[in-house]
Design a protein around this nucleic acid. Structure first.
Lengths: 189, 189
DNA sequence: CGCCCCATGTAAGACGTTACATGATTGA
DNA sequence: TCAATCATGTAACGTCTTACATGGGGCG
């Protein structure tokens, strides 16, 4: 039972959790919104859905209402919800940042629906710590090697550092956003 | 002759262009520098090198100097240099930004060695235009859909917008860096 | 002598891409 | 009726991941 789910699988789980959807619906989301990092090709999505169904994380039911064509709508099973929660709750290591940022942001995007504001906040704090540590190691590497590179190499490296720094700033902003929301809710009681 | 080279292949070409290297050297570069987005696994690199050799883009020669073990050092062929140049000179479309940023920065990092400062500047300007157009479409999407998302979704989206804006700023900085360099060289004549 | 690093590879399996294929429904 | 869109899928192919495998060389 070594359940390794690729990034696309989690994207599908998260979207289906927000709202039950067919393969076609999901393809449209990928192609029409800025989730274009995920492929809208049927050759990726339909097999992925079948895999998730085989793992009992989603279940599809055929709908034929209102004279429409055959349409298989997928919903999360309770196991699927658990799997989503487990994925989102994973702590973020500094080493995850360079390779898995995309997936981390996906986790965060779904976090509130799946794990509530508290879950979102936990993720943000974990991310902030990972980013701080990662920025430090990038700086060290930059100072050690920047004079060996051509200008374009140096600049490319700097763009990477800036990207991480900018994301770090964003985590601060996001954390205060959640804390504000919490205060509002608290006072509304 | 449909030469489609994956990202890893170009990374290898660019590194070998900087300095002839063996598979092991390249693995070490990937694992020890911040190019960790590329895998250092032998199962990826050695087959990739053989593919490039089969395409006549690199050629390996076995070295045995100084009592060392067998070591195959690869060098670019003239065709390989051409292929690198072609890759770097490709204009950047707005649609390339969300999916291919990583590869674009790789192109830029190698650009000065392969295509000179003029090539780097061209790339930067092309990137700036693509980013401007992409920011505009992201903003439009954000204003259209931000009220439908939970806070975490909104914030995740914002982080994407910020990342692109920050990169756009960086292109301005990089372009002036190259223009300064050009002025210095001009006055040095 | 044993262990770690150098250095190269192979094999199985999973995943994504591209392209092809099918058929129903809606609207011009 | 013709085209576009809805909706689902399959097949071939290439590539990456993980894990295994092999041996020489240096060092304690």
């Amino acid at each position: 039972m070594d359940v390794t789910i690729p990034s696309l699988g989690y994207a599908l789980l998260g979207l289906i959790h927000q709202k039950p959807a067919s393969g076609y619906d999901l393809r449209k989301i990928f192609s029409s919104t800025s989730m274009k990092t995920y492929s809208d090709s049927p050759g990726a999505i339909y097999p992925a859905l079948r895999r998730l169904e085989k793992q009992n994380l989603i279940r599809g039911t055929i709908e034929k209402g209102s004279g429409l064509r055959q349409r298989q709508v997928f919903r999360l099973t309770s196991q699927g919800v658990l799997e989503l929660k487990k994925w989102i709750a994973q702590p973020i290591a500094p080493a995850d940042v360079p390779r898995g940022l995309q997936e981390i942001m996906l986790r965060f995007a779904f976090s509130e629906n799946v794990a509530g504001s508290a879950g979102s906040l936990d993720l943000l704090k974990s991310l902030r710590a990972a980013l701080q540590s990662h920025v430090a190691s990038l700086d060290a590497e930059f100072h050690a090697s920047h004079n060996l590179m051509p200008l374009s190499g140096r600049l490319a490296f700097e763009s990477g550092v800036r990207a991480v720094e900018s994301l770090l700033q964003w985590t601060g902003y996001a954390i205060t956003s959640y804390q504000k929301q919490a205060r509002k809710k608290g006072s509304a009681l």
